[in-house]
Amino acid sequence: MVDMAENNRAVIKLRERFAADIVEVKEFRGEVTVTVTKNNIVEICNYLKTALGYNLLTDVTAVDYLGKSPRFQVVYNMYSIPSKDRLRVKAQVEEADATIDSVSGVWSSANWLERETYDLFGITFAGHPDLRRILMTDDWVGHPLRKDYPLQGPDREPYKGRLS
């Protein structure tokens, strides 16, 4: 199935221009995922938007692979309204340097989505115009969607089932 991913128009173009940044190209259930290093994420996103027509940034989120290196993957789900196809770009972010450049200058929809990722994962978006917590309160300590954040919260005993 690798061929299908390699024949994707965006993958061909990205391989030409950003060969050094591409870590992996994967295809699963007809969806193409391109994993890149975080260094040129703004240039890559800008190129995908302006040259390849991915004009709608559907979603920005992250996945915490606790215990693996790099620990975080920042996930950009994008969509091209003219050609009606999707592309997923993932950028690798290390725990020690949990920061990545903001793409809010490319798509303004990234503004709140990056704020949410910062809030729940603690990944800093450099160059973001207004990086504040959005779902949790301003004085909250910790980032709830990290895998090492306990489900019941930091200051409570874990739920052990019903007592009766």
Binding site: T58, T61, V63, N77, R86, R88
Partner: peptide
């Protein structure tokens, strides 16, 4: 093992589920 994204046209807009 894998990851999928499924978007549906909700009354409010595109609702998407990204499962890993």
């Amino acid at each position: 093992e894998g990851e999928v994204y499924q978007g549906v046209e909700n009354p409010k807009g595109e609702l998407g589920y990204y499962l890993v």
